[in-house]
Design a binder for these strands. Sequence first.
DNA 1: TGACTTAGTGTCCAAATTACACTTATAGTT
DNA 2: AACTATAAGTGTAATTTGGACACTAAGTCA
Lengths: 229, 229
Amino acid sequence: MSFTYEYPRGALTVDCVVFGFDGGELKILLIQRGIAPFKGEWALPGGFVSPDESLDEAALRELEEETGLRNVFLEQLYTFGAVNRDPRERVVSVAYFALVQPDEHTTEAQTDADDARWFQISEIPELAFDHSEILKTGLKRLRGKLRYEPIGFELLPEKFTLPQLQRLYESVLGNELDKRNFRKKVLSFGLLIPLDEKRREGPHRPAQLYRFDPARYEALKNEGFLFEI
Amino acid sequence: MSFTYEYPRGALTVDCVVFGFDGGELKILLIQRGIAPFKGEWALPGGFVSPDESLDEAALRELEEETGLRNVFLEQLYTFGAVNRDPRERVVSVAYFALVQPDEHTTEAQTDADDARWFQISEIPELAFDHSEILKTGLKRLRGKLRYEPIGFELLPEKFTLPQLQRLYESVLGNELDKRNFRKKVLSFGLLIPLDEKRREGPHRPAQLYRFDPARYEALKNEGFLFEI
DNA sequence: TGACTTAGTGTCCAAATTACACTTATAGTT
DNA sequence: AACTATAAGTGTAATTTGGACACTAAGTCA
């Protein structure tokens, strides 16, 4: 493996599977491609990795450039390297997994790019390249992680109610949960701090607001605590 | 993200964290580097991805070229892309995770390369590049997966005993397990087929041999069964 | 045949999980 | 002011699961 013989080199990109949740169905952020190949088709946000930035940095940069999103939960997902996944030439893509909290006031995640759009998970169009496969991988990861790590809070506003949290779990995992058992379990972790506020939003009893306590989660983790819902 | 402007390109490699188990401690396969940089130091087996092969193919090829191993359990682990992880130039490495079954007769995994050596997990030397970090990531993955997926069998010979399996779990997870509870749990899955053979290996009662039933696992998985030890 | 070593087995108690129905607080309507 | 509609919030009993625990069985070797 000497450097005296150099292979012809492929290109390296990052692509992001961005999830959002507005209280209804799980959503994914896509952008409409402005250039060939696949011009006009929908694709995951992403782009080329430049030589002076790490993969994480490239993912954050592309996300901001293409969708305006900042301060998102971001984690590496999987690297896709099939030989012909890009029709132009060899391109390997490091896929990322992002969770976006809805804007404090609109309860919906916002973007400032006009070629970006949120799609309900049940209404995803055909995507460019192998992005449908990447998305599927991301969805599988989300479902897996939601059960074993407290990442659901990354999809909710800072202050949220237990019914909101339960709807998120039901929506992502695709099964109904018993209200009493869900609350009992979630509250038993001691990771939710009840606030002096309630959320009024209809002709019915208002719901207690909570916030997640990340510091306490870190502390518990070091004691061998395992989150599981 | 047009192709009209081309970034200078880095190189792409694969590196493999190869685990083995011989009944004692967990082991890792390393190779001694023959060329600079880090000449003479120990490193993970791996090398450059060529443009006409997928990442998985590259990992399999490098593993065979450098260690002689074939038919191993191989799975992508994580992609390491810090800017200066290689002192020569930008090199991004897709790390793989491999489990090797010991040879049927020697009960120890064999390799035919003389610059390759198995190291006990407790006696790993300093490694070249960022390979210590990659190894740490691999070990974390192994510990995580062992609890939730039936991959322990990939580290044991085709026919194995329950005490062997238990020692593997204890060795990897680092805690002692109750013999009766372990057997009860493992056998309750119905994934182990008892053979008409016992393993005699000392002045004591011989142990029942079993083999893992992968087809049954696939079937159970489709019914929503979750493996967990 | 006796000593030694590891394989193999069952029960009881504690803890966790599940199923399940009514009361409470609010907004809107009359 | 009273009534209606709606979603929030609460406890208990039954079942299942997990964990602790000690002896017998089958072989080898002296």
